[in-house]
Nucleic acid binder design. Structure first.
Lengths: 166, 166
DNA sequence: CTTGGAAAGTCAACAAGGCTGACGTAAATT
DNA sequence: AATTTACGTCAGCCTTGTTGACTTTCCAAG
């Protein structure tokens, strides 16, 4: 299985070894990706789950609970635990829907915006430095491969954020 | 702070919006990245932690426990729990070090190789299809950005694997 | 040869963050 | 009026991470 000659490789980089390196790169890079926010969070009572919730609330202010459930891909009980503490501690604010009063629209409070900013600054700093080190060409490829790696449903979520998000 | 004009942007793609998209791409892609092995694992008594251990034992047969600890970045108690079940179920085999008899060298058994193969086939299939969809240029960039995103220590681990692993 | 430190294993307890199942309430829809 | 939808919550479980303490084995250096 390491016997396949060139040919495939020169066209598409698809030896098992190349693929394995990609897998390992994902593993190690994801650790780096979460390291900085994690360091900030562990000094408080919050975890990675709180960060994710705040990120997407910040990204789509006024989003509903069920929308957030779809994006995060967790159960409502799991999300509720996180949302509960964010509400209690005044980082997130609720607003009943005007059109449909069953819906709860989520917003970050001033306080919440401050923390989100701190977390996202740290994470963006690492991303910025990685982009700088790799160069503009690489950034295109990076995003293309990641996008192709997503499940179709996840890709849809991702692209919906892109549209609304700029 | 959203006031920065062009200049930076045209050279290096470094608007906050670009960085935010990269962050979200990592988030959604990592879910896809782990989805296929997870589906296989949940039908058995194993989890993602078992997969990671098996992956790196397969990658570096005969590696020691402390080596594996450094790569995985967890505590020995955490790893030991996982390793315990893999040994008990006959997926992993131990060998006392010849030179230093305190060391335990880890190997996959026949049985272990079969499972590792199934998991890694699934994961490589997704990686292969993402690479194909994105093209050879993109693969270069993908790996370059991921590598730049790692902590220096993680990058060292990653590169040590590359050397020995081909 | 003794002693110190390194490699590994283990017990106990705990926390974060997933999960399922069941149930309740308010509001929209049919 | 009945059903469905959106949300919240209680209770309990699992995986996988953590700290702290302690032991055994073994290498290496004094």
């Amino acid at each position: 299985m390491a016997e396949n000659s060139t040919g495939d490789e020169s066209l598409l980089f698809l030896t098992d070894e190349q693929l394995r390196k990609g897998i390992e790169a994902m593993f190690f890079a994801y650790r780096g990706f979460t390291a900085d926010p994690d360091r900030i969070l562990e000094t408080m009572d919050y975890g990675r789950a709180h960060h994710r919730a705040m990120h997407f609330i910040h990204r789509s202010p006024g989003t509903t609970v069920s929308n957030l459930l779809a994006i995060l891909g967790v159960t409502k009980q799991s999300l509720n635990r996180v949302l509960r503490t964010l509400l209690d501690q005044g980082l997130v604010r609720l607003e009943k829907g005007r059109a449909d009063q069953r819906e709860r629209h989520l917003f970050l409070t001033e306080h919440g915006l401050v923390l989100e900013r701190a977390l996202s600054d740290a994470q963006r700093a690492r991303m910025r430095s990685a982009y700088r080190a790799a160069g503009p060409q690489a950034v295109q490829g990076f995003r293309a491969v990641l996008e192709a790696m997503m499940d179709p449903e996840q890709r849809r979520q991702y692209q919906r954020l892109r549209e609304g998000g700029s």
